[in-house]
Design a protein around this nucleic acid. Structure first.
Lengths: 113, 113
DNA sequence: TGCAAACATTATTATATTTGAATATAAAAG
DNA sequence: CTTTTATATTCAAATATAATAATGTTTGCA
């Protein structure tokens, strides 16, 4: 199974607005490069560069249809990540219970700032 | 609610091996800076830099305990992301069903390579 | 009051990422 | 075979990120 390190690396690869946009679209189905050009407001070479990066890390792959390259999702972690990015999180995590222990000390002291 | 763009930005911030390591530890409870120094094999200033970055983006916060800073998790998206990073994904997503349609064409053509 | 512990900040350097421009390739059409 | 369409690759410039080294700040305590 894939190491945590590899998954963090993958996270770095997909943590880019355009690439997330690409992956969101691919979740809805197969798309070719010129499809992406339509709704991503960037040049064709730049689309290809982002696709190449995602391919290099095994996130996506493609089929050929004549001279079209039909891209699709390959890495099963992607839908889970996109789902979390679309989930609504409100508020903050609860402050830790009173007096938890670190290696060096206990608190409460003062709230910061 | 937080925009998708902001969440992608957050993803970029946490997509670093050391910061993921820090967040993993914080899920188990409160930790002070010297606690981190023990198991992260990096200098104290570097620990502080990573913590400062996570703080700046609201991912973590801290309480004071004398001269210790007791860090804890603040952003509720973090546990969900860590959970996915630890989940075991095997194989690949199923190839798209026969003959899906892009704006420009249909396939099947040939499988790549 | 003065010192040491715990932590933060700044500046510098090294390296990686992103984009745009130019060019290349491969397949289909003519 | 030549042209066109669809897409990829390469290179260079601009920018961002990461680590290290040096220094600063705050708090508790002798």
């Amino acid at each position: 199974m894939r190491s945590l390190g590899k998954k963090v690396e993958l996270l770095r690869i997909i943590a880019h607005p355009i690439r997330i946009n690409i992956l969101e679209e691919l979740i809805t189905g197969v798309k070719c490069v010129s499809d992406f050009e339509e709704f991503l407001d960037i040049s064709q070479p730049n689309v290809s560069q982002h696709l190449a990066l995602l391919r290099r890390y095994g996130v996506i792959d493609y089929y050929m249809d004549g001279r079209l390259r039909c891209y699709f999702l390959r890495d099963p972690i992607i839908p889970d990540i996109i789902k979390i990015l679309k989930k609504d999180y409100m508020g903050e995590l609860p402050a830790p219970a009173c007096c938890p222990v670190t290696k060096k000390g206990k608190y409460p002291g003062e709230r910061r700032r």
